[in-house]
Structures are given as structure tokens and as C-alpha cells.
């Protein structure tokens, strides 16, 4: 169970994530504010947008669907990802995700 971190302007949440779930699921299971995940992880809503602050090397790159959908997010940046498209693996230990301000 890697420990991953969600930070925002007002909060920092450390989460022990289960391998096999998605980073979005790890966030919603721990009520991380700002990760709404309205579509439930089906790459259809972009409400699980995060910035990878630290540790992007541990992540597999985004696929075409995700890259397209990221354009829907508020203020996408090069380090933007959809949390629902990132599977939790042991390599994610210590990775920091920033939740964008609303």
C-alpha cells in the first residue's frame, strides 16, 4: 500500500492507496476535497483533474483519450493528469498530487 499525497491551498491529505484502484478512487475514498469524479472514473468528465507535483517519473504517460479529456479541465498544464486514469502501483510511493483550486 503506497502512501500518496494530495495537497491543495488549504489541505494536505496522506493516503495509503490500494494497489489496483485508481488514484481518483484513493482520493474519493478519503474525501479529498476538489476531486469530484462525477463520471465515476470513465474518462468522461475531467472533474478528477490533478497536477503531478512530485514524482511524475513513476507514472505511465496519459493515453489519447485522457489527453483529449484533459483539455476539458480548468487550467490544464503540462503536469496535468486525470486521477481516474492513473492506476495505483507500488512505484507511486511518495508521489504528490496537487488538487487545482476551483
Amino acid at each position: 500500500m503506497p502512501k500518496i499525497v494530495f495537497v491543495s491551498d488549504t489541505a494536505r491529505t496522506e493516503v495509503f492507496a490500494e494497489v489496483g484502484q485508481s488514484v481518483m478512487q484513493a482520493a474519493t475514498a478519503h474525501l479529498v476535497d476538489g476531486i469530484d469524479a462525477d463520471c465515476g472514473g470513465h474518462c468522461s468528465c475531467a472533474t478528477c483533474h490533478v497536477y503531478v507535483e512530485d514524482g511524475s517519473a513513476a507514472l505511465a504517460p496519459a493515453d489519447a483519450d485522457e489527453t483529449d479529456m484533459l483539455e476539458c479541465a480548468n487550467n490544464p498544464m503540462p503536469c496535468s493528469r486525470l486521477a481516474c486514469q492513473i492506476p495505483v502501483t507500488e512505484e507511486l510511493e511518495g508521489v504528490v498530487f496537487r488538487v487545482p483550486p476551483r
Partner: peptide
């Protein structure tokens, strides 16, 4: 056209 959607919102 996801980009359109983002801006349409």
C-alpha cells in the same frame, strides 16, 4: 470535441 466542451461550459 473535448476542448469545445471545456470552453462551452
Amino acid at each position: 470535441r473535448p476542448v469545445d466542451f471545456a470552453l462551452a461550459r
